[in-house]
Amino acid sequence: MSAFHASKGVRRPTVASALVVFPLAFGVAGSRVRLPPPPAWFALVTLPRVRLEVDRDHVVVMHDVNVPRGQWRGGDLELFVAFGAPGPPRAMDARLFGGDANGDPPADAASEAIVLEKTPRRPSTAYLLLGPPNMAGAVLHLGQAAFRRAVAPSGVARIRVRALYDLPSKDARERREIVVRLGTLGGEALALERIEVVSLESVQGILAADARLCGPDADPYPLAVSGVPEPSRATQAPAPLAPILSVRHSSDDLCVRFWSP
């Protein structure tokens, strides 16, 4: 867990809690529970960056989400984030940054921890931030005072959600695939600006990586990934598209494949 700081809201799961989470993640999602629609967002939320940090035995999926103040007039916020695939994360944390709306917060930027709470599905009062509402996930409890502080300098708060997963096993073509939640099924699709895949190992951590949107309406174009070389492709295949130029549907997820030794 060198690259990961567990927050006080998430404990490392025990066997017993994992047994609870798995049925929630798969059983409830399959039972098609009808949920009330999520509250309408008070602003246009965007995803400036999705970053995968790959290590020898785990991968950290990091979502950077920009939440502008928009029409927010006060009150605590509950934000729902669904778990990705292949399964629930081993650990998760979230932090709140304020300041510059245009760039990534510097490494030493001040931030506040956001309290997380696991949940079998989106609670009715929670805004839908990432992923389908009827999947297991976590609710981010964002206090009014903290959000106000974060949006004060530039009008935009940056929420960074990190989830630590076991390294997925290789498929027959030596690839590992991870599904990153993007969509807010039933809500508005969030514009995605950048995908990064990096290796935390010093030598030859990742040989190549590619990414594409996946879902029933997803556009077929491969998306540009920064940080690692793209895999060799047939000459007829379309060139990767900058993520910002992709048409995002609310049912899309992001499928990232990478080749590691």
Binding site: P238, I244, S246, R248, H249
Partner: peptide, 17 residues
């Protein structure tokens, strides 16, 4: 409607396949 809203909220230039 969802499909059209996604297209409308997306980039202006949509490359043809």
């Amino acid at each position: 409607a969802a499909w059209m809203r996604a297209r409308a909220g997306g980039p202006a230039r949509i490359p043809s396949q």
